[in-house]
Amino acid sequence: MSWPARVVSTELRKILAYRSDFWVNFLGQTIIQLFIARALWQSIFESNGQTEIGGFTLSQMTLYYLLAPLTIKILMGENIGFFSREIYDGGLNRYLVWPLPPIGYKLLTYLTYSAFYTAQLALLYTFARFFLDDRPYELSEFLRLIAGLGYILVAAIGYFCMMCLCELVAFWADNTWSLGVMLRFVAGFLGGTFLPLSFYPETLREIIQYLPFAAFISGPVNLILGRSTPMEALQSFVVMLVWLPILGLAVRALWKKGNLQYTGVGM
């Protein structure tokens, strides 16, 4: 078995090791949050006496609130602390003897989580789609789902780079988990996890369409839901592709600079 396959298999075993935690957290994070979001929007639809707000019906809004939080969960892959912990306690030393590139190894463990959550999203979305949407299921919808899932996995690489930028600050700072939390707040808000971006004021939308967050979250969600034209989806994908090398180069530069600071016995 090659090392990437071994890494993926080990990570999958880790994910499934604590099953009760896994199912409770999974149900909590998706189903309960979805019900709460739906309750909020149902109240808004009813108090306004409208069947459509901002181009969304209540069912479409529900599907949006199923997809957007799951998308950011996929993007976040493995949780906060994947690099910074090793920098603090000197655990980074192991990569001197491991025949693995450190960032490559971390990316693979990160993406294993992302891929696992992507499978969850595909299942849940397909299930919810049949319950919430009366329209007949068409082949184009299935193709959009496949394209959207691929899009999210590529976006996860970009988010991994952003997480790395936060984590690698640990070469200089004592604690960096707060940077990861900040990133999650910013990504959630500017990416459209809390509210669809179409509700944002025009001037704000003009700016955030060129930032990576909208391309990473709203882009694939709107593609899966069929809310973006092929041109808009392509534009969003291109924005993401432009950000990927920028973020990748920033990680490389920070990694090189940080390694010069590293003492190897814990910071």
């Binding site: 009760s20 935690d21 149900l27 309960i32 949050q33």
Partner: peptide, 16 residues
């Protein structure tokens, strides 16, 4: 449950 997190993630999700 013997995990290191308990159901904390579930709690944070419910926070909304």
């Amino acid at each position: 449950t013997q995990s290191s997190r308990g159901f904390s993630d579930f709690f944070f999700s419910m926070g909304v």
